[in-house]
Amino acid sequence: MKPLIILLVTFIISLFAIKFITKKYDFTLSARIAMSIMLVFTAIGHFVFTKGMSMMIPEFIPFKEKFVYITGVFEILLAIGLLIPNLKVISGWTLIIFLLLMLPANIYASINNLNYQKGTFDGNGLAYLWFRIPLQILFIIWTYISTIRI
């Protein structure tokens, strides 16, 4: 829920800040700024909740904590790429693929009732997927519209 709130609030703030500065609305730039800020926010979670996030990764994948750190850095790099005009399209496609690849980790965490913030197994369970899957789809559509379909 927090990433969605950050996405929407920063979109609105960016939209009006750009309007104030340039005297016109720039929806796609505002959307990319919002997605970038949301990505940095979620990337911070990779460093703060490393233990819990590593529990989201299936057992057969080695070096879980390193993988969590790498994906956190990757999110920061994507956030930067979305803001660089020459990199926004490739960053957008990369982010879409990344979001698709991360969905199984969210499903795995839900099936196992994982609370990644506490690193415990008392999370919301499968009910969380009713929110998470549409949210992931929203992030993918948001990214596509703001970076690729221009």
Rank of each mutant, 00 (worst) to 15 (best):
M55C: 00
G81L: 10
I44V: 15
L77R: 10
K64R: 13
L39N: 02
V73Y: 12
R32Y: 01
F60I: 09
F63G: 10
L39I: 07
P62H: 10
G72E: 11
F67W: 14
I33G: 05
A79Q: 09
I44R: 14
Y69E: 14
M38S: 06
S54M: 06
L82A: 07
F74H: 09
P62F: 02
E75Q: 14
I61P: 06
G52H: 05
L82G: 01
I61E: 06
F67N: 12
M56K: 10
K66M: 12
L83Y: 05
K66R: 11
M35F: 07
L82S: 01
K51T: 03
V48E: 13
L78E: 07
T42G: 09
L82R: 05
Y69V: 03
M35I: 09
L77I: 14
G45R: 05
R32G: 00
L77C: 12
I80Y: 02
M53D: 03
A79K: 03
I84E: 06
A79M: 12
V48W: 14
I57H: 04
A79N: 02
P58E: 04
T71S: 15
A34F: 05
F74M: 14
F63V: 11
M38P: 04
L82F: 13
T42P: 06
G72T: 09
G81T: 11
I84S: 07
L82N: 02
H46W: 07
I70A: 11
S54W: 08
E59C: 00
G45A: 07
E59N: 13
K51M: 03
F63Q: 08
F41Y: 15
M55V: 03
I61N: 06
V40K: 11
F60Y: 12
A79T: 02
M56V: 05
I84Q: 07
F74E: 06
I84L: 08
H46T: 00
M38T: 15
